[in-house]
Amino acid sequence: MTTLGAVLRPQLPPERLRSVVRTAEESGLDELWLWEDCFLESGIATAAAALAWTERLRIGVGLLPVPLRNVALTAMEAATLHRLFPDRLTLAVGHGIQDWMAQAGAKAASPLTLLDEYTAALRALLRGERVTTEGRYVRLDGVALDWPPATAPPLLAGALGPRTLRLTGRVADGTVLDAHVGTEGVREALRIVGEGRAEAGRTGDHAVVSYVLTATGPGAPERLAAELEHEGISAVPDVAVAGDAQAVADAVRRRAEAGAGTVVLQPTADEPDPEGFVRFAAEEVRPLVG
């Protein structure tokens, strides 16, 4: 069965978080996804609040930009949340937007090397291992968590280009594909991820999360067209959907058929009714997806 989620974009101020989170919980949404975008809101702080305000809703953070975060600190934060709220959190890490990383004085000369070293160390720490490593970017000397998760959680990584996609197949437990990737792009991405998994001899499940730019209600086509133009992806086939619940459900099914296990509806940045968007996803689209 396809997992259906929605994004609460950080263009909303933090004080709007509780209302949207409570709506997601009460309407029966499968997952609510949060972003750690510069310089808007923290992914960990918002995830902690969202988990504390709910009882069953799963929260995804897609993604934490690794150049900004010491891996030991991320491991501590992740382990704390996983122990406080077992089986309700999905974390993804990634390169981050390079211009933002440069603004923060954290841009890496080799983002791929950093993500490789970081993901390996973070997964080991969350498994409860004592880690010593002297990499180009990640350096740990006998670091182990006193309170690791009771069960090692899956760790996802965001990817867009082929080298990063192959890396996520090698070192991560899943891949997050952003809203610039259309349905055929999902298929191609999974092919490349599969190459990475084969190189590493990895078997078993590999989670795939696909974002779909979505608009519904009055002015939906115009809002979506403006967003696509702003993002420079107007020419990408089947990258977005505007319309009623049936149109959106059909788009979700196409992503699922392409290989996405989780499909996350991403509203436009100027979505006029975030609570209504979440309710629409849960109450109108979810029953049509199956």
Rank of each mutant, 00 (worst) to 15 (best):
W147N: 11
G204F: 09
R191F: 02
A52N: 01
L89S: 03
W147S: 12
A120T: 10
I233P: 00
D37G: 05
T74S: 12
Y211R: 04
G5L: 01
T268L: 08
G194C: 06
L165K: 10
H230A: 14
G204R: 03
T183M: 00
L114E: 08
A152V: 00
L32N: 07
G219N: 03
W147M: 09
R58L: 03
A108N: 10
D30S: 09
L32C: 13
A102H: 02
T214G: 15
G201K: 05
R9E: 04
T132Q: 13
E117S: 08
D273I: 03
G182I: 01
V209R: 14
V193F: 09
I44A: 12
R127T: 12
G135F: 15
G261S: 11
A207W: 13
Q266L: 12
A52Y: 09
L165M: 08
G28H: 07
L177F: 15
R136K: 11
L64H: 11
E36S: 07
L177R: 10
L73W: 00
Q246K: 08
T164S: 10
D250I: 15
V209P: 06
V208N: 05
E229N: 10
P10Q: 11
V131T: 02
A124I: 05
L89F: 01
R127D: 11
G142V: 08
G5S: 03
D99C: 04
V71W: 10
A172P: 04
T74P: 07
F280T: 03
T168C: 02
Q266M: 08
A72F: 05
A249C: 06
W33Q: 02
L17H: 10
H95P: 05
A226W: 01
V193A: 08
E283P: 06
T183I: 01
S210W: 13
